[in-house]
């Protein structure tokens, strides 16, 4: 790693002013950022740790919305959302491994927007609101392709508000080495329709599968997506799976998510 100055502000305001400095970079749990920095692929002058900000931690459910502080770990979401939003808790409980889940945060995951990460599928699949220190961003506007988001420089994800669906589930088919999603599908059923978000598969990063959403909104059952297919064009094609394979898996995982939704 290149060296940097480490700061750990106690408030969002202090963090925001630290982030205003030149080449400042926010640090959530560091489970992706620190390995990246070990490879010397990032060289911030200042690393602003967000995990000391009490206001940015915690999970609360009110008025049909689950609000998760940006610095809340995956482990905390897995345990605290289990009752109110089991589909999301299930997703959180399978990110990385137990030690990673004790450090990694939802804000860090969403800010990074790895094309194979799990949380982007939940945020997009619920139509979540990404709350930052300056504004609120709808998930549909937030994700802008792999590793790209609507966040401005220095902007901090302070919380995420996820509308709690009537039923939901996330199915991840893991890439055998990294255990990231080769294809992950989050399905959420709301009174006004179904949302389906796909991660891991596309060169464009997380995205909605609108054809499946329409079919499932009409008939929320696995059989509703029989006959639907996803084009292999634009799907990631690598060592671990061809585009055609990923496209196929999108259908399989969607069906399984619908069948398992609770």
């Amino acid at each position: 790693m290149y060296n940097f100055e480490f700061v750990q502000p106690g408030s969002v305001a202090d963090a925001a002013s630290a982030m205003a400095g030149e080449d400042a970079q926010a640090l959530g749990g560091g489970q992706t950022l620190l390995p990246t920095m070990k490879q010397r692929l990032a060289s911030p002058a200042t690393l602003v740790s967000l995990t000391g900000i009490a206001d940015m931690k915690g999970v609360s459910a009110a008025d049909g919305v689950l609000t998760i502080g940006g610095a809340t770990t995956h482990a905390t979401v897995a345990s605290e959302a289990a009752g109110s939003f089991p589909g999301l808790a299930g997703l959180a409980s399978h990110i990385g491994d137990p030690a990673v889940r004790n450090r990694g945060t939802i804000g860090g995951s969403l800010a990074n927007n790895d094309p194979a990460a799990c949380y982007p599928a939940a945020a997009l699949g619920t139509g979540a609101t990404i709350v930052t220190n300056t504004r609120e961003i709808a998930a549909d506007d937030y994700f802008q392709g792999m590793f790209s988001t609507a966040l401005d420089e220095g902007e901090i994800i302070t919380s995420v508000r996820l509308p709690i669906p009537q039923a939901s589930n996330y199915q991840k088919f893991v890439q055998p080495a990294s255990r990231f999603a080769l294809v992950g599908v989050f399905v959420a059923k709301y009174a006004d329709g179904v949302r389906v978000a796909v991660t891991g598969a596309s060169e464009e990063g997380v995205h909605r599968w609108t054809a499946a959403e329409e079919a499932l909104s009409a008939n929320f059952s696995a059989s509703a997506i029989e006959g639907l297919s996803v084009a292999a064009d634009g799907m990631i094609n690598d060592l671990h799976g061809t585009g055609a394979y990923r496209a196929h898996l999108v259908g399989v995982m969607t069906k399984r998510a619908v069948a398992a939704a609770s």
């Binding site: 480490f6 750990q8 560091g30 489970q31 390995p35 070990k38 690393l47 990673v100 450090r103």
Partner: peptide, 28 residues
């Protein structure tokens, strides 16, 4: 160096973490 092997797992405040993917300063 990718936070996967787990040979570095220690407990910080009672929780298992990968000590190769945590700064010493974070454990202050």
């Amino acid at each position: 160096d990718t936070s996967q092997c787990g040979a570095c797992v220690v407990h910080v405040n009672g929780e298992a973490v990968k000590s190769c993917t945590m700064l010493a300063a974070e454990a202050d």
